[in-house]
């Protein structure tokens, strides 16, 4: 079965990103697919590469990236939510003349249409938020 996940909260502040990741891992371990994880609202902060995490704590953005790499999961940061909150990839940064970008490896910026598409195409869409 193909799952799509919607993550509405940032890392650390709320457990939602953890729950989504644990669900994804469990689903993959059972032979299911995770077609896409879409990050909305403060969830876009999961995709920053500038987080400096204490060594004894889980590194949430890196954990997502690793999952994506090993299992071909599409990690999509919503462009509208990301622009509001200052999460930019190199192209977006150039386009808005910001001089810096901060999107972590393994993530990409995409439109809301990608979430709707996931909702239509995946067998199940699960929402993790606050």
């Amino acid at each position: 079965m193909q799952f799509a996940l919607l993550v509405n909260e940032g890392p650390y502040q709320h457990q939602a990103a953890d729950s989504a990741w644990h669900f994804a891992r469990a689903a993959l371990a059972k032979g299911h697919g995770i077609s896409r994880v879409f990050f909305y609202h403060d969830g876009v902060y999961n995709g920053t590469r500038l987080g400096v995490v204490p060594q004894d704590e889980r590194h949430i953005p890196e954990r997502w990236a690793l999952l994506a790499k090993e299992h071909d999961v599409d990690l999509v940061i919503c462009v509208a939510a990301a622009q509001r909150r200052g999460i930019l990839d190199a192209a977006e940064s150039r386009r808005h003349g910001k001089g810096a970008d901060n999107l972590a490896e393994g993530f990409r910026i995409g439109g809301l249409g990608q979430l709707i598409e996931s909702g239509i195409e995946a067998d199940r869409l699960l929402v993790f938020g606050d």
Binding site: H22, F23, A26, L125, G129, D130
Partner: peptide
């Protein structure tokens, strides 16, 4: 149930609704 059971429940139900 554990996360594995969570996945099974999501498979068994056509709709998953979160109460945020």
């Amino acid at each position: 149930i554990d996360y594995e059971g969570f996945v099974d429940l999501a498979v068994a139900h056509e709709l998953v609704q979160s109460w945020l």
